[in-house]
């Protein structure tokens, strides 16, 4: 797939699950795999939280 940021080529695994993170090898930006209702895959900017997940 094309990187939404730099249009580089991102290799999205065929068995990628919803929410899986892929990173563009060209610009280094991470994206979240989103499965659309029609089964198509799209890439959304990954919103990553820090590692403090409570007690």
């Amino acid at each position: 797939m094309k990187c939404p940021e730099c249009e580089g080529d991102i290799d999205v695994p065929a068995d990628a699950l919803e929410g899986e993170i892929v990173t563009c090898p060209d610009c280094g930006v991470s994206f979240e795999v989103h499965k659309k209702r029609d089964g198509a895959t799209e890439l959304r900017p990954a919103q990553i939280e820090g590692e403090d997940w409570g007690e």
Binding site: L17, G19, I21, A46, Q47, I48
Partner: peptide, 13 residues
């Protein structure tokens, strides 16, 4: 969202 490493060793939100 939380970023985790799933049972397949892949990163997922």
């Amino acid at each position: 969202k939380l970023l985790v490493v799933d049972e397949r060793g892949r990163k997922r939100a």
